[in-house]
Design a protein around this nucleic acid. Structure first.
Lengths: 253, 253
DNA sequence: TGATAGGGTGCTGCATGCAATTGACTCAAC
DNA sequence: GTTGAGTCAATTGCATGCAGCACCCTATCA
């Protein structure tokens, strides 16, 4: 889901936003960037000094991050940075695949007018056209953005508020997001082939949706998430590439 | 998931628990029981007076309930009670079905030792034996308890921490829980038949898991959730029965 | 009669103070 | 050297104060 992400970043820059929101965003970003160790205790006072706000917004943000799954409550109060096993990352991607599969199915089943797919097709075509020239840093970043938009557009087409909500909860774990492993993949040998497969899957998903093939849409979307799992598998062989995964510092290897 | 529920109730009674936790539990219970109107603004001061704690734990609880999806942030600060359309309830059950389906599949795929299924079989048998004599209020309550244990045992057997976590988020919406519509159903004509079908599906799920039939386990578990959706459909015809659904006051009819 | 401006009330956002609990460190005794 | 107890520091749980903002109500003017 890239739209909230963008809003978030904007909010981080413009100063006219509550301390609460800014603190939450900053802490989350710090967690993603690995500024804390796994298992490290996050005490309110030092954070308060570091971020220049009082303990109140810090407390609220910590509580929230715990519910998001990035922190866990310590037995005797306070919070520590959670650590995720590789299996947990694996399973998080599996869960995303299942939910995105369902989204694709519902998108096919609930389609009323073919023009509803215009946006999705545009994303697909734009991504596809980007394949021809080799991707540089800049265009790669917009490719990732398009990829997230594509995935979130399918969820929108599912017309299920609850599914959207559930999926948002899952991909709030950084390594579970649809683009999490795409960047790391680009560093791998065989990246080009994987990229081609991924694009073909995108094409097949759109094709299935526009032809009302719910079951096909579901299974292709699931398999598409498995591509992330396959990327993960290969990325694990190289520590440097592993460090390209967002939130990698939370992952126990 | 009934174990945490029990713990929660215990914690509500024993006084040696933080105000934070108790306030969260009490507010959630009040929301479920319909003590607030849909769309009603929950102000901190009145709640503070009503629950006998200061604004701080109230604030934390409200923030948390908003993230759980029971409240929504008002544009100008504060929170209002969220309202759910029938479609949202419908879709929430669909999402649960998809996740439980995946749980059943993983349970089948990841089974290592047949004895891991002992607990699940015991729940199944206990529920099945309860069918013979007509259920009274008391035994019905333990039936619901067993039903929740059965469902959560399948999730446990899936051995996926992330799936468990995701499903917990979904069924924290009261009307999405596996037992939400079972009680209401008991008031309906044709309840006995639905009950028989449900039990047969339980049997089939266990059978599929113990025979390593992942795809079958998944599709039966999905269909089992659709039984809830069918119950919902029938329950909608009668306002009195509708009021038996937990959290019904949040549902816009 | 309607619309706009102004004041007032009540709420939230945030900071901070206080007490209680926990966890660590030290010192002493076995 | 190891274990135990006692003390001290640090941290959280919670309450409350203050300021600012939003919304509502009213009054006045067009």
């Amino acid at each position: 889901m890239s739209a909230p992400e963008n809003d978030a970043e904007k909010a981080l820059l413009t100063e006219d936003v509550s301390h609460n929101a800014r603190t939450l965003l900053r802490l989350r970003e710090m967690l993603f960037k690995g500024e804390f160790q796994r298992g490290e205790r996050l005490s309110e006072l030092p954070l308060s000094a570091r971020l220049g706000v009082s303990r109140t917004p810090i407390r609220l943000a910590l509580e929230r991050l715990a519910h998001e799954g990035l922190l866990e409550a310590s037995r005797s109060g306070g919070f520590v940075v959670r650590e995720f096993t590789i299996d947990a990352v694996w399973d998080a991607i599996e869960v995303r695949g299942v939910l995105e599969g369902n989204a694709a199915r519902l998108a096919a089943e609930r389609l009323e007018d073919d023009r509803e797919l215009d946006t999705l097709r545009r994303y697909r075509d734009e991504m596809n056209s980007m394949r021809k020239p080799a991707l540089n840093e800049d265009s790669f970043s917009s490719y990732l953005d398009l990829n997230e938009r594509f995935h979130s557009e399918i969820v929108r087409l599912a017309k299920s508020e609850m599914l959207l909500w559930t999926l948002d909860r899952v991909i709030s774990l950084p390594f579970a997001s649809p683009s999490a492993l795409v960047f790391a993949r680009s560093k791998l040998p065989g990246a080009a082939e994987m990229h081609i497969v991924g694009e073909e899957q995108h094409r097949a998903i759109v094709d299935a949706i526009e032809n009302g093939q719910g079951t096909r849409a579901e299974s292709v979307a699931r398999e598409h998430a498995r591509l992330s799992r396959r990327n993960l598998e290969m990325v694990l062989t190289d520590r440097d590439i592993l460090s390209c995964i967002p939130g990698n510092s939370l992952i126990k290897t």
